[in-house]
Amino acid sequence: MSQGTLLTATQACAAQLVESETVMKQALRQAPVVHVDETGLYENGRRIWLHSASPQDMTFYFPHEKRGHAAMQAAEVLPAFQGIAVHDHWEAYQQFEQCEHAFCNAHHLRELQRAIDQDQAAWAEEMTTLFLDIKEQVDHAKAVGQTALSPDEITHFQTQYRGIVDQALQPSLMTPPATKPPTRGRQKQSKTKNLLDRFDRYQTETLRFMTDFRVPFDNNLAERDLRMIKVKQKISGTFRSPEGTRAFCRIRGFISTIKKQGKNVLEALTNTFKALPNTT
């Protein structure tokens, strides 16, 4: 099979899936929980960004030259989404205020480990233990068919969380003696202090997996959905054109969706080509 034949087939398949992608985006806007993430790609040697939006039964990919809010607007999912967006707490996602947010605690565990290893932060050890205790309790409750923790359990864990954060914040309220003239502008905080401030400000988003069982502990679903794209990138090195990037992402999103729904991928692709207009 020649490269020209493959290119023609790819373009035809992608064009045929435009309507399916439109329907998918409409369904995503109505989903109760959507995992979102982004990763870098290369297109004709330049860096672009691939955005993903994924509930349990669908995968939507959207390539864009930008990483932030403008790209998310162009993807046409988050601007109209009113469910719960699960992500890695990047501020660009936080700008969508019409929906609720849940943070990936797998990211938090890695950041807490860094705070323990590099800054010897005792509070980070306590928070790590608390996260794992809550996760264990939630996993057990789900396993025995419960749909929520008891109010007493939730209050107990929230109190522990608040105590760890408040105690850790105490040293930051003290002004250390000046050892050199202060520099102009905003003073840069340590990564550990930034993490602590995030826990202080976003307790609800951090612990949403505890209060709403529809929300998982982490954002692994989105990371898994991006993994195949990264594998493709390692093999090919770069996409050659915006049209090729969009075609690949649309077809790959369709295949991922079919697999998530437990359907036959080959049969679904065959039906897609059968639906093409006859040009002979």
Rank of each mutant, 00 (worst) to 15 (best):
T39F: 01
A178E: 11
G40V: 01
Q189R: 15
K191I: 06
D117A: 10
Q158S: 12
T257A: 04
G68W: 06
K263N: 06
K234A: 13
R250H: 04
N194D: 12
Q189V: 07
R47E: 04
F60N: 11
Q98M: 02
Q233W: 12
T238M: 13
Q11L: 05
R67C: 06
D152Y: 02
K259F: 09
E205Q: 15
G262P: 03
L221H: 15
E100I: 12
A14F: 01
C13P: 07
H108F: 06
L28Y: 01
C249W: 00
N278P: 04
A31E: 03
R114F: 00
A12R: 04
Q167G: 15
E21M: 02
A106Q: 09
Q56L: 12
F131D: 00
A12G: 06
Q16S: 14
D139Y: 00
E19H: 00
H69R: 14
Q26S: 14
M58Y: 09
V265Y: 02
A178Y: 06
D37H: 00
D212N: 15
E136R: 12
K191A: 15
T238Q: 14
G145I: 04
D218H: 05
A115Q: 03
L276N: 03
M228G: 15
A121G: 06
R198V: 12
N220W: 06
T59S: 14
T279K: 02
I134G: 07
D166L: 13
Y42H: 00
M24F: 08
G40S: 03
I255T: 02
D166K: 15
Q30H: 08
E76G: 11
V215D: 05
V18K: 09
R198Y: 04
D57F: 07
I258C: 11
Q82V: 10
G4M: 00
Q170T: 13
Q118T: 07
Y161W: 14
Q160W: 07
Q113Y: 02
E43H: 02
K180I: 10
R110D: 02
L226D: 10
G185L: 11
H89A: 14
Y93H: 11
A12S: 05
L149R: 05
E205M: 10
D139N: 14
T270G: 04
D152G: 14
L169I: 02
T238A: 12
F213K: 13
N271Q: 01
Q189E: 01
A9E: 01
P32D: 12
S190V: 08
A268Q: 01
Q167C: 13
A71R: 09
R67Q: 10
I255W: 04
Q120N: 03
M127G: 06
F213P: 09
T147H: 05
L130Y: 09
A14N: 02
T147R: 07
D197C: 14
Y42P: 01
G262A: 01
H87P: 07
T59P: 09
L173C: 10
T238F: 11
D133F: 03
I116S: 03
F157T: 12
Q3M: 10
L17M: 07
A9N: 06
R162I: 11
N220Y: 04
E205G: 12
N194R: 15
D197K: 14
L28I: 11
A80K: 11
C104K: 11
K274N: 05
E21P: 07
